[in-house]
Design a protein around this nucleic acid. Sequence first.
DNA 1: CTAGCCTTGAGA
DNA 2: TCTCAAGGCTAG
Length: 473
Amino acid sequence: MEFRHGAGVEEPCPVCGDKVSGYHYGLLTCESCKGFFKRTVQNNKKYTCAQSQSCRVDVSQRKRCPFCRFQKCLHVGMRLEAVRADRIRGGRNKFGPMYKRDRALKQQRKALIQASRFRIVSSPSLGSSTQQRDVTFTCGLHPVPILHCNPMQSHGISYQPPTLSSLLPSDSPGVQQYQCTSSSNWTIKSEHGNNSAAGFDSDELYSRHLPLRGLRMPQLVTEFVRCDPDEQQLQNKITARLLQEQTDCEKHGNPSSFGLMCLMADQTLFSIVEWARTSIFFKQLKVNDQMKLLHSCWSDLLLLDVISRQVLYGKEGSLLLVTGQEMELSDVASHAGVAGLIQRGQELVEKLHVIKVDRQEFACIKFIVLFNPDVKQLEDHRFIESVQEQAEGALLEYTLCTSSHVLGRFAHLLLCLSELRSLSALAEEYLYCKHLGGEVPCNNLLIELFHAKLGMNTQAPCECLQPHGGIKL
DNA sequence: CTAGCCTTGAGA
DNA sequence: TCTCAAGGCTAG
Protein backbone atom coordinates (compact mmCIF):
# COMPACT_ATOMS: atom_id res chain seq x y z
CA MET A 1 0.00 0.00 0.00
CA GLU A 2 1.24 3.47 -0.82
CA PHE A 3 1.76 5.90 1.98
CA ARG A 4 -0.58 8.75 1.22
CA HIS A 5 -0.69 10.89 4.30
CA GLY A 6 1.42 13.80 3.18
CA ALA A 7 3.74 14.47 6.08
CA GLY A 8 6.84 12.34 6.31
CA VAL A 9 6.39 10.88 2.87
CA GLU A 10 9.90 11.87 1.84
CA GLU A 11 11.51 10.28 4.88
CA PRO A 12 13.49 7.15 4.09
CA CYS A 13 12.99 3.87 5.92
CA PRO A 14 15.07 4.17 9.10
CA VAL A 15 16.20 0.57 8.71
CA CYS A 16 17.36 0.38 5.08
CA GLY A 17 16.67 3.79 3.55
CA ASP A 18 14.11 2.49 1.04
CA LYS A 19 10.84 4.26 0.34
CA VAL A 20 8.48 4.31 3.29
CA SER A 21 5.09 2.68 2.72
CA GLY A 22 3.38 3.55 6.02
CA TYR A 23 3.51 2.95 9.75
CA HIS A 24 4.48 -0.62 10.52
CA TYR A 25 5.10 -2.05 13.98
CA GLY A 26 5.64 1.30 15.63
CA LEU A 27 7.18 3.54 13.01
CA LEU A 28 7.38 4.52 9.37
CA THR A 29 9.19 1.81 7.42
CA CYS A 30 9.32 0.37 3.93
CA GLU A 31 7.24 -2.61 2.82
CA SER A 32 10.17 -5.01 2.77
CA CYS A 33 11.35 -4.24 6.30
CA LYS A 34 7.78 -4.55 7.48
CA GLY A 35 7.58 -8.03 5.95
CA PHE A 36 11.01 -9.00 7.22
CA PHE A 37 10.17 -7.93 10.77
CA LYS A 38 6.85 -9.77 10.65
CA ARG A 39 8.39 -13.03 9.38
CA THR A 40 11.17 -12.86 11.92
CA VAL A 41 8.88 -12.34 14.90
CA GLN A 42 6.05 -14.62 13.79
CA ASN A 43 8.34 -17.51 12.99
CA ASN A 44 10.64 -16.84 15.92
CA LYS A 45 13.67 -16.78 13.62
CA LYS A 46 17.17 -16.88 15.06
CA TYR A 47 19.89 -15.42 12.88
CA THR A 48 23.63 -15.23 13.28
CA CYS A 49 26.04 -12.72 11.84
CA ALA A 50 29.01 -14.03 9.90
CA GLN A 51 30.90 -10.78 10.46
CA SER A 52 31.17 -8.66 13.55
CA GLN A 53 27.49 -7.84 14.06
CA SER A 54 27.96 -4.43 12.55
CA CYS A 55 27.02 -5.00 8.90
CA ARG A 56 25.75 -2.08 6.92
CA VAL A 57 22.00 -2.28 6.27
CA ASP A 58 20.86 -0.43 3.16
CA VAL A 59 18.59 -1.09 0.21
CA SER A 60 21.22 -2.98 -1.74
CA GLN A 61 22.64 -4.98 1.18
CA ARG A 62 19.67 -5.56 3.44
CA LYS A 63 19.36 -9.21 2.36
CA ARG A 64 22.96 -10.00 3.22
CA CYS A 65 22.75 -10.17 6.99
CA PRO A 66 19.31 -10.77 8.54
CA PHE A 67 20.89 -10.68 12.00
CA CYS A 68 22.07 -7.09 11.60
CA ARG A 69 18.88 -6.13 9.80
CA PHE A 70 16.74 -7.38 12.67
CA GLN A 71 19.02 -5.73 15.21
CA LYS A 72 18.59 -2.48 13.34
CA CYS A 73 14.81 -2.92 13.23
CA LEU A 74 14.82 -3.16 17.03
CA HIS A 75 17.34 -0.38 17.39
CA VAL A 76 15.31 2.14 15.40
CA GLY A 77 12.25 1.28 17.46
CA MET A 78 10.16 -1.39 15.70
CA ARG A 79 7.87 -3.00 18.26
CA LEU A 80 7.78 -6.75 18.85
CA GLU A 81 4.44 -6.38 20.60
CA ALA A 82 2.83 -4.96 17.45
CA VAL A 83 3.13 -8.38 15.79
CA ARG A 84 -0.05 -10.20 16.78
CA ALA A 85 0.36 -13.53 18.49
CA ASP A 86 -3.17 -14.54 17.45
CA ARG A 87 -2.54 -13.53 13.82
CA ILE A 88 -5.97 -11.97 13.54
CA ARG A 89 -6.12 -9.73 10.48
CA GLY A 90 -7.47 -6.22 10.06
CA GLY A 91 -8.64 -3.72 12.58
CA ARG A 92 -6.58 -1.32 14.60
CA ASN A 93 -4.01 -1.85 17.31
CA LYS A 94 -3.12 0.14 20.38
CA PHE A 95 -0.50 2.15 18.47
CA GLY A 96 -3.11 4.16 16.57
CA PRO A 97 -2.95 7.26 18.78
CA MET A 98 0.83 7.16 18.71
CA TYR A 99 0.86 7.16 14.90
CA LYS A 100 -1.56 10.04 14.90
CA ARG A 101 0.59 12.09 17.25
CA ASP A 102 3.69 11.34 15.26
CA ARG A 103 2.00 12.38 12.03
CA ALA A 104 0.82 15.64 13.57
CA LEU A 105 4.30 16.31 14.91
CA LYS A 106 5.95 15.68 11.58
CA GLN A 107 3.47 17.88 9.79
CA GLN A 108 3.95 20.64 12.34
CA ARG A 109 7.70 20.45 12.06
CA LYS A 110 7.60 20.47 8.28
CA ALA A 111 5.29 23.46 8.20
CA LEU A 112 7.47 25.39 10.62
CA ILE A 113 10.65 24.63 8.71
CA GLN A 114 9.01 25.62 5.44
CA ALA A 115 7.61 28.78 6.94
CA SER A 116 11.05 29.68 8.25
CA ARG A 117 12.65 29.05 4.86
CA PHE A 118 10.01 31.15 3.17
CA ARG A 119 10.78 33.98 5.51
CA ILE A 120 14.46 33.68 4.77
CA VAL A 121 13.94 33.72 1.01
CA SER A 122 11.54 36.62 1.09
CA SER A 123 13.25 38.64 3.76
CA PRO A 124 14.21 42.03 2.31
CA SER A 125 16.73 42.69 5.05
CA LEU A 126 18.64 39.59 4.11
CA GLY A 127 18.52 40.34 0.44
CA SER A 128 20.04 43.68 1.11
CA SER A 129 22.63 42.27 3.42
CA THR A 130 23.91 40.12 0.60
CA GLN A 131 23.86 43.05 -1.76
CA GLN A 132 25.74 45.08 0.79
CA ARG A 133 28.84 43.13 -0.07
CA ASP A 134 31.66 45.57 -0.16
CA VAL A 135 32.51 45.79 -3.83
CA THR A 136 35.33 48.18 -3.09
CA PHE A 137 36.81 45.60 -0.79
CA THR A 138 40.48 46.48 -0.59
CA CYS A 139 43.33 44.11 -0.43
CA GLY A 140 45.36 46.39 1.81
CA LEU A 141 48.38 44.77 3.29
CA HIS A 142 48.48 46.71 6.53
CA PRO A 143 49.05 44.49 9.51
CA VAL A 144 46.14 43.66 11.77
CA PRO A 145 46.77 44.98 15.27
CA ILE A 146 48.56 42.34 17.20
CA LEU A 147 47.52 40.61 20.38
CA HIS A 148 48.45 42.01 23.71
CA CYS A 149 50.83 39.20 24.41
CA ASN A 150 52.73 36.35 22.83
CA PRO A 151 53.56 37.78 19.48
CA MET A 152 54.22 34.82 17.29
CA GLN A 153 56.13 34.27 14.13
CA SER A 154 54.49 33.68 10.81
CA HIS A 155 56.68 34.67 7.90
CA GLY A 156 59.15 32.12 6.77
CA ILE A 157 57.74 29.45 9.01
CA SER A 158 58.50 25.99 7.74
CA TYR A 159 54.99 25.06 8.64
CA GLN A 160 54.04 21.62 7.35
CA PRO A 161 50.59 20.72 8.50
CA PRO A 162 48.95 17.50 7.44
CA THR A 163 46.51 17.74 4.53
CA LEU A 164 42.79 17.34 5.00
CA SER A 165 42.89 13.92 3.39
CA SER A 166 45.48 12.75 5.86
CA LEU A 167 43.31 13.93 8.74
CA LEU A 168 40.39 11.84 7.58
CA PRO A 169 40.42 8.05 7.79
CA SER A 170 41.52 6.44 4.57
CA ASP A 171 39.15 3.50 4.74
CA SER A 172 35.44 3.80 4.27
CA PRO A 173 33.60 4.03 7.53
CA GLY A 174 30.47 3.03 5.68
CA VAL A 175 30.65 -0.49 7.01
CA GLN A 176 29.81 0.75 10.47
CA GLN A 177 26.31 0.20 11.61
CA TYR A 178 24.27 3.35 11.83
CA GLN A 179 23.93 4.15 15.46
CA CYS A 180 21.23 6.74 15.40
CA THR A 181 19.51 6.88 12.08
CA SER A 182 16.03 8.10 12.48
CA SER A 183 14.34 10.96 14.12
CA SER A 184 11.43 8.60 14.58
CA ASN A 185 13.10 6.85 17.45
CA TRP A 186 12.87 9.92 19.55
CA THR A 187 9.88 11.70 18.17
CA ILE A 188 7.36 8.92 18.61
CA LYS A 189 5.95 8.86 22.05
CA SER A 190 5.24 5.47 23.45
CA GLU A 191 1.72 4.47 24.16
CA HIS A 192 2.19 4.74 27.88
CA GLY A 193 4.25 7.88 27.77
CA ASN A 194 7.14 6.69 29.89
CA ASN A 195 8.89 4.30 27.60
CA SER A 196 9.34 6.01 24.28
CA ALA A 197 12.05 4.52 22.15
CA ALA A 198 14.61 7.08 23.22
CA GLY A 199 13.07 8.97 26.05
CA PHE A 200 11.63 12.01 24.36
CA ASP A 201 8.04 12.68 25.22
CA SER A 202 6.31 14.27 22.26
CA ASP A 203 3.65 15.76 24.50
CA GLU A 204 6.31 18.23 25.58
CA LEU A 205 6.16 19.58 22.06
CA TYR A 206 2.61 20.65 22.50
CA SER A 207 3.27 22.55 25.70
CA ARG A 208 5.70 24.83 23.95
CA HIS A 209 4.63 27.94 25.75
CA LEU A 210 6.01 26.59 28.97
CA PRO A 211 9.59 27.51 29.67
CA LEU A 212 11.23 24.11 29.79
CA ARG A 213 14.87 25.15 29.90
CA GLY A 214 16.72 22.68 32.02
CA LEU A 215 14.25 19.89 31.42
CA ARG A 216 14.74 16.93 29.13
CA MET A 217 15.83 17.98 25.67
CA PRO A 218 15.65 16.10 22.36
CA GLN A 219 18.16 13.26 22.51
CA LEU A 220 19.77 14.32 19.27
CA VAL A 221 20.61 17.72 20.77
CA THR A 222 22.31 15.97 23.69
CA GLU A 223 24.17 13.87 21.17
CA PHE A 224 25.30 16.93 19.21
CA VAL A 225 26.51 18.68 22.36
CA ARG A 226 28.40 15.56 23.36
CA CYS A 227 30.35 15.77 20.10
CA ASP A 228 31.53 19.30 20.89
CA PRO A 229 35.08 19.61 22.20
CA ASP A 230 35.61 21.09 25.65
CA GLU A 231 36.44 24.80 25.26
CA GLN A 232 39.19 24.79 27.88
CA GLN A 233 40.88 21.72 26.42
CA LEU A 234 40.67 23.21 22.96
CA GLN A 235 42.21 26.43 24.21
CA ASN A 236 45.08 24.58 25.87
CA LYS A 237 45.71 22.43 22.84
CA ILE A 238 45.78 25.26 20.34
CA THR A 239 47.84 27.52 22.59
CA ALA A 240 50.37 24.73 23.04
CA ARG A 241 50.58 24.15 19.30
CA LEU A 242 51.01 27.83 18.56
CA LEU A 243 53.71 28.18 21.22
CA GLN A 244 55.47 25.23 19.66
CA GLU A 245 55.33 26.97 16.28
CA GLN A 246 56.70 30.09 17.92
CA THR A 247 59.69 28.37 19.50
CA ASP A 248 60.37 26.49 16.28
CA CYS A 249 60.43 29.65 14.27
CA GLU A 250 61.83 32.34 16.51
CA LYS A 251 64.79 32.84 14.25
CA HIS A 252 62.70 33.82 11.23
CA GLY A 253 62.36 37.59 11.61
CA ASN A 254 59.49 39.77 12.77
CA PRO A 255 56.11 38.28 13.30
CA SER A 256 53.17 39.29 11.14
CA SER A 257 49.92 39.58 12.96
CA PHE A 258 47.99 38.47 9.90
CA GLY A 259 50.19 35.42 9.52
CA LEU A 260 49.60 34.68 13.17
CA MET A 261 45.87 34.90 12.68
CA CYS A 262 46.19 32.48 9.78
CA LEU A 263 48.03 30.02 11.96
CA MET A 264 45.36 30.35 14.58
CA ALA A 265 42.66 29.83 11.99
CA ASP A 266 44.61 26.88 10.73
CA GLN A 267 44.75 25.28 14.13
CA THR A 268 41.08 25.96 14.62
CA LEU A 269 40.39 24.25 11.31
CA PHE A 270 42.27 21.20 12.53
CA SER A 271 40.05 21.11 15.57
CA ILE A 272 36.97 21.51 13.35
CA VAL A 273 38.08 18.60 11.16
CA GLU A 274 38.74 16.57 14.30
CA TRP A 275 35.30 17.47 15.61
CA ALA A 276 33.63 16.44 12.34
CA ARG A 277 35.69 13.27 12.01
CA THR A 278 34.58 12.00 15.39
CA SER A 279 31.02 13.26 15.24
CA ILE A 280 27.88 11.21 15.04
CA PHE A 281 26.63 10.69 11.45
CA PHE A 282 29.74 12.24 9.88
CA LYS A 283 31.95 9.32 10.79
CA GLN A 284 29.55 7.04 8.94
CA LEU A 285 30.15 8.84 5.65
CA LYS A 286 32.64 7.76 3.05
CA VAL A 287 35.81 9.82 2.97
CA ASN A 288 34.91 11.37 -0.39
CA ASP A 289 31.67 12.75 1.00
CA GLN A 290 33.42 13.87 4.18
CA MET A 291 35.92 15.84 2.13
CA LYS A 292 33.27 17.38 -0.08
CA LEU A 293 31.24 18.54 2.89
CA LEU A 294 34.25 20.01 4.68
CA HIS A 295 35.53 21.67 1.52
CA SER A 296 32.17 23.30 1.11
CA CYS A 297 31.54 24.63 4.61
CA TRP A 298 34.91 25.10 6.32
CA SER A 299 34.68 28.89 6.30
CA ASP A 300 31.13 28.83 7.68
CA LEU A 301 32.27 26.53 10.47
CA LEU A 302 35.35 28.61 11.16
CA LEU A 303 33.33 31.80 11.41
CA LEU A 304 30.68 30.03 13.46
CA ASP A 305 33.43 28.94 15.84
CA VAL A 306 34.61 32.53 16.27
CA ILE A 307 31.09 33.91 16.61
CA SER A 308 29.87 31.27 19.05
CA ARG A 309 32.90 31.97 21.23
CA GLN A 310 32.01 35.67 21.34
CA VAL A 311 28.38 34.94 22.14
CA LEU A 312 29.04 32.32 24.82
CA TYR A 313 32.17 33.66 26.48
CA GLY A 314 33.10 37.02 24.91
CA LYS A 315 33.03 40.53 26.32
CA GLU A 316 31.61 43.55 24.60
CA GLY A 317 34.12 45.50 22.58
CA SER A 318 36.72 42.78 22.38
CA LEU A 319 37.43 39.76 20.25
CA LEU A 320 37.99 36.58 22.21
CA LEU A 321 40.45 34.32 20.43
CA VAL A 322 40.51 30.55 20.52
CA THR A 323 43.63 30.82 22.68
CA GLY A 324 41.71 32.71 25.33
CA GLN A 325 43.44 35.98 24.49
CA GLU A 326 41.51 39.13 23.78
CA MET A 327 41.92 41.81 21.15
CA GLU A 328 40.34 45.24 21.11
CA LEU A 329 37.63 45.16 18.48
CA SER A 330 38.26 48.78 17.58
CA ASP A 331 41.88 47.86 16.79
CA VAL A 332 40.81 44.99 14.58
CA ALA A 333 38.16 47.04 12.81
CA SER A 334 40.52 49.93 12.13
CA HIS A 335 42.42 47.76 9.73
CA ALA A 336 41.62 48.50 6.08
CA GLY A 337 39.56 45.90 4.34
CA VAL A 338 38.00 44.24 7.34
CA ALA A 339 36.01 47.06 8.86
CA GLY A 340 32.76 46.05 7.12
CA LEU A 341 33.31 42.42 7.94
CA ILE A 342 34.02 43.13 11.58
CA GLN A 343 31.03 45.41 11.89
CA ARG A 344 28.61 42.91 10.41
CA GLY A 345 30.18 40.13 12.43
CA GLN A 346 29.72 42.20 15.55
CA GLU A 347 26.10 42.89 14.67
CA LEU A 348 25.52 39.18 14.25
CA VAL A 349 27.18 38.45 17.59
CA GLU A 350 24.98 41.07 19.18
CA LYS A 351 21.81 39.57 17.68
CA LEU A 352 22.73 36.11 18.92
CA HIS A 353 23.75 37.49 22.29
CA VAL A 354 20.44 39.31 22.75
CA ILE A 355 18.41 36.15 22.18
CA LYS A 356 20.87 34.21 24.36
CA VAL A 357 21.74 31.46 21.90
CA ASP A 358 23.19 28.61 23.91
CA ARG A 359 25.64 25.75 23.37
CA GLN A 360 22.88 23.36 22.43
CA GLU A 361 21.65 25.60 19.64
CA PHE A 362 25.16 26.26 18.33
CA ALA A 363 25.77 22.50 18.35
CA CYS A 364 22.67 21.92 16.17
CA ILE A 365 23.60 24.78 13.83
CA LYS A 366 27.04 23.27 13.29
CA PHE A 367 25.44 20.04 12.09
CA ILE A 368 23.00 21.93 9.86
CA VAL A 369 25.97 23.74 8.29
CA LEU A 370 28.11 20.61 7.93
CA PHE A 371 25.44 18.35 6.45
CA ASN A 372 24.66 20.47 3.43
CA PRO A 373 22.77 18.40 0.83
CA ASP A 374 23.29 21.14 -1.77
CA VAL A 375 26.93 20.14 -2.14
CA LYS A 376 27.46 18.69 -5.63
CA GLN A 377 28.13 15.05 -6.40
CA LEU A 378 27.60 13.58 -2.97
CA GLU A 379 27.54 9.79 -2.93
CA ASP A 380 25.26 9.51 0.04
CA HIS A 381 23.12 12.52 -0.70
CA ARG A 382 19.97 11.09 0.85
CA PHE A 383 21.63 10.33 4.15
CA ILE A 384 23.22 13.78 4.30
CA GLU A 385 19.89 15.40 3.56
CA SER A 386 18.19 13.34 6.24
CA VAL A 387 20.84 14.31 8.81
CA GLN A 388 20.34 17.98 8.02
CA GLU A 389 16.58 17.53 8.37
CA GLN A 390 17.08 15.75 11.67
CA ALA A 391 19.38 18.52 12.89
CA GLU A 392 16.83 21.14 11.88
CA GLY A 393 14.11 19.13 13.56
CA ALA A 394 16.18 18.80 16.73
CA LEU A 395 16.87 22.53 16.77
CA LEU A 396 13.21 23.30 16.17
CA GLU A 397 12.07 21.00 18.94
CA TYR A 398 14.68 22.41 21.28
CA THR A 399 13.61 25.98 20.55
CA LEU A 400 9.97 24.98 21.01
CA CYS A 401 10.88 23.65 24.44
CA THR A 402 12.94 26.63 25.48
CA SER A 403 11.19 29.58 23.92
CA SER A 404 7.75 30.99 24.33
CA HIS A 405 7.73 32.15 20.71
CA VAL A 406 6.71 29.19 18.61
CA LEU A 407 8.33 30.10 15.33
CA GLY A 408 10.21 33.26 16.18
CA ARG A 409 13.34 31.82 17.72
CA PHE A 410 13.83 29.04 15.21
CA ALA A 411 13.26 31.37 12.26
CA HIS A 412 15.58 33.92 13.82
CA LEU A 413 18.34 31.34 14.15
CA LEU A 414 17.98 30.32 10.52
CA LEU A 415 18.13 33.96 9.49
CA CYS A 416 21.33 34.35 11.47
CA LEU A 417 22.70 31.26 9.74
CA SER A 418 22.03 32.89 6.40
CA GLU A 419 23.90 36.01 7.52
CA LEU A 420 26.76 33.82 8.75
CA ARG A 421 27.11 32.25 5.30
CA SER A 422 27.11 35.65 3.69
CA LEU A 423 29.82 36.84 6.08
CA SER A 424 31.98 33.79 5.57
CA ALA A 425 31.87 34.38 1.81
CA LEU A 426 33.09 37.89 2.48
CA ALA A 427 35.84 36.57 4.73
CA GLU A 428 36.94 34.16 2.01
CA GLU A 429 37.09 37.04 -0.43
CA TYR A 430 39.32 38.91 2.00
CA LEU A 431 41.50 35.86 2.46
CA TYR A 432 41.82 35.44 -1.27
CA CYS A 433 43.08 39.00 -1.65
CA LYS A 434 45.59 38.38 1.12
CA HIS A 435 46.62 35.16 -0.52
CA LEU A 436 47.21 36.94 -3.84
CA GLY A 437 49.31 39.45 -1.92
CA GLY A 438 51.42 36.57 -0.62
CA GLU A 439 50.53 37.23 2.98
CA VAL A 440 48.98 33.88 3.83
CA PRO A 441 51.55 31.35 4.98
CA CYS A 442 51.86 28.56 2.44
CA ASN A 443 51.28 24.91 3.17
CA ASN A 444 48.45 25.45 5.50
CA LEU A 445 45.07 23.81 5.74
CA LEU A 446 43.36 27.14 5.30
CA ILE A 447 44.74 27.48 1.82
CA GLU A 448 44.16 23.86 0.92
CA LEU A 449 40.51 24.19 1.83
CA PHE A 450 40.27 27.53 0.10
CA HIS A 451 41.60 26.15 -3.15
CA ALA A 452 39.44 23.07 -2.87
CA LYS A 453 36.39 25.28 -2.64
CA LEU A 454 37.44 27.31 -5.66
CA GLY A 455 37.78 24.03 -7.51
CA MET A 456 34.27 23.01 -6.44
CA ASN A 457 32.69 26.27 -7.47
CA THR A 458 34.24 26.28 -10.90
CA GLN A 459 33.55 22.57 -11.31
CA ALA A 460 37.15 22.24 -12.40
CA PRO A 461 39.13 19.23 -11.26
CA CYS A 462 41.17 20.12 -8.25
CA GLU A 463 43.90 17.98 -6.86
CA CYS A 464 42.97 18.99 -3.35
CA LEU A 465 39.62 17.27 -3.81
CA GLN A 466 41.25 13.93 -4.35
CA PRO A 467 41.04 11.78 -1.24
CA HIS A 468 44.74 11.14 -1.23
CA GLY A 469 45.86 14.35 -2.86
CA GLY A 470 48.15 16.71 -1.07
CA ILE A 471 48.62 20.42 -1.13
CA LYS A 472 49.63 21.57 -4.56
CA LEU A 473 50.21 25.27 -4.44
C1' DC B 1 13.63 -16.15 1.81
C1' DT B 2 12.28 -11.74 -0.15
C1' DA B 3 9.21 -8.13 -1.24
C1' DG B 4 5.29 -6.36 -3.69
C1' DC B 5 0.54 -6.67 -3.74
C1' DC B 6 -3.90 -8.32 -1.62
C1' DT B 7 -7.43 -8.96 2.11
C1' DT B 8 -9.25 -7.89 6.41
C1' DG B 9 -11.70 -5.40 10.00
C1' DA B 10 -11.63 -2.07 14.30
C1' DG B 11 -11.98 2.54 14.97
C1' DA B 12 -12.60 7.38 13.41
C1' DT C 1 -18.32 4.55 5.03
C1' DC C 2 -13.59 5.21 4.87
C1' DT C 3 -8.96 4.62 6.54
C1' DC C 4 -4.90 2.16 7.14
C1' DA C 5 -2.02 -1.07 9.70
C1' DA C 6 -2.34 -5.59 10.62
C1' DG C 7 -1.71 -10.56 8.35
C1' DG C 8 -1.71 -13.42 3.90
C1' DC C 9 -0.30 -14.83 -0.67
C1' DT C 10 2.93 -15.82 -4.18
C1' DA C 11 6.40 -14.94 -8.16
C1' DG C 12 10.90 -14.80 -8.38
